[in-house]
Write a protein that binds this DNA or RNA. Sequence first.
DNA 1: AAAACGCCGGTTTTT
DNA 2: CCGGCGTTTT
Length: 739
Amino acid sequence: MDILKGLNEMQKEAVEYTEGPLLLLAGAGSGKTTVLTRRVANIIEKGTNPYNIVAITFTNKAAKEMKERVCKIAEQGDKVWVSTFHSMGVRILRQHIDKIGYDKSFSIFDSTDSEKVIKNCLTDLNLSDKHFKPKNMKSIISKFKNELVSAEEYAKREEKDSREQSISDIYTLYESKLEKNNALDFDDLIYKTVLLLESNEEVLEKYQSRFEYILVDEYQDTNIPQYKLVKMLAGKYKNLCVVGDDDQSIYGWRGATIDNILNFEKDYENAKVIKLEQNYRSTKKILASANSVISNNTKRKVKELWTDNEEGVNFKYYKGYNEQDEAVYVINNIEKMVEEDGKEYDEFAILYRTNTQSRQIEDNLVKNNIPYVLYGGVKFYERKEIKDILAYLRLIFNMDDEISLMRIINVPKRGIGNGTIEKVYEYANENGISALRALSNVEQIETIGSRSKNIKKFYDLLMSLKDKSKEVEIDELIKEVVELTGYIEELKEEKTDEANTRIDNIYEFINKATESAKNENNTLETFLEEISLVADIDAYDENTKCVSLMTMHSSKGLEFKNVSIIGFEENIFPSYRSVSSDDEGELEEERRLCYVALTRAEESILLTSATSRMLHGRVNNNKVSRFFDELILTDIDDVSPIKKPKIQSRISKLPKMDYAHSVERTKQFMRSSENAHIFSAPQDKELGFEVGDTIKQMRYGKGVVTEIKPAGADFEVTVDFGSKGEKKFMGILSRLKKV
DNA sequence: AAAACGCCGGTTTTT
DNA sequence: CCGGCGTTTT
């Protein structure tokens, strides 16, 4: 097939420019994946062995998709190494990690495991988990690793105050505990790979020679270690193509730095830059609004997406009374479009800022019998029962994994209580042996006495499982675990719904294992790895006939005909943290997230918010999101029961912009007939006061009016009483008086 | 040793 | 509002 068929000029150029460093700035919906796969095909066609090409992505889903598409158009495409950063790290480390002092059968700790290790560190160091919160410590350590600062280096650093010194101790002990467990945490998968390649010329040379062509997707999401890894791997041939969009950088909190993309031209001499700015996905209205929002960011490469697509329909905006009302509207809207316009459920996505927001939506979908898929939330592999079974498997694979050992030593109950466990640990420490070795010598531990037979039984159970693992497939092994431990038996005893769900989950887990076992060269190692590295979105299947529910973060890279963004409110989106942070950058990242969400849509967008919302057991009254003001307001139909709330405040809240831009925007804003009334002073004679006035109320005393909304013959007046909070009144009825 | 209770604290996004 | 965790009770 013709590799350039159907491409625009810029796309063709990107496909043909195969030698040397290339930065491909690919806007949302600009046909990026097509260009990438054709480019790979082109490199192969020019005579390169596919084995010498590597493509790096962030999610398994993206990797899988790219692999499939490359295979379709290129001879021997299956030989191209398409991998995520993390699985690439694992693959390199499994082969060479012994060179930096680990065993090749290392475990991968998830963040829960890491936090447990940190808790152990705190106990050992006699530090309080109130002052040194494990979650917080975890993220500090993660930050160090993402800045390539080792525990050793940090320990040497001078001028540390006492808190920093303690943190340094925690970091050091944490690292040594991981080593003792022969485990790596998530950050290590990249960090330790970098350390390995830095310290070992031979290994570096091996991979540098192999990778004649390197391709990195979503480059705007790379952090420092990832950047460094890529730079080292590309060191020999420098045929490095990075693809990204600085406007879609939404993982700053994970250490990703937008500078990697902004500085590419400085990092790589003679780098070619190609911009893909034509969007093939969205309507003109959607694109114009997305552009309008993102133009408020200061730190970005100049580009503007355009499209030949139709103008399209207006956005809809619905402000509900509360989150329940909001959910009902969103679902009714979908139902209506399905019934009246012949849409399918799978053409809809509901996006939100935080996972908890999916709850009301889910309730209402169930009520209305609408099929849906929820991505994210409590992950399958993080359920208690699955983690328990997994702990057995992990322990069988890596007997040094004490976190797993601790998890299941008395699960199901087998009469090994905390007291006994402590004694085992004491013995292990005194004799400088691993906990498992101590278990095998349990008869020697005098203090335990007759309970040692429980331990003996447990130890024998583990050993027989380990033997089994060498003979049978993974699904058989899991069945064996369940059988020998009596795990399901114990659950059956409970006879509760919850226990039954857990049993179902275990059967589902076995099914998944059976699926995996079908792949040739599937081992316990690869199975565990697969599970450690899955993301929610990896399960995304575009062939379902379901409404999709996911966070805006998860939606990156996907597209839907109709998108609903719920919770379009201050303190939710943008998040409370970003709003109250003094780092301007955080807000810009939220704005980029907004840009990502908007550009998922092909045809229509519904934005919703709620006047009052229950949050952490408390009622919140949030204003509509500031991003609302940054949209092109004339392209929005307000379908709320109460129209245009608080529109007065908008003038002062126009986004910060350079002067020319600002004047233009203001003019545009005033021209819009819908907004014309804003510029006449809003005053309601019947009330005798307006927004901003101080009034007096019988019970609460003096307060400032923040909002007036018509409500039938009366007005709903919101008054801020300062420390007493915000209250709502019916203005005339409650006889509010201007002071 | 296991179940039951009650308090405290957190609470964004995730490979 | 939730869940986790430590304390108390059986």
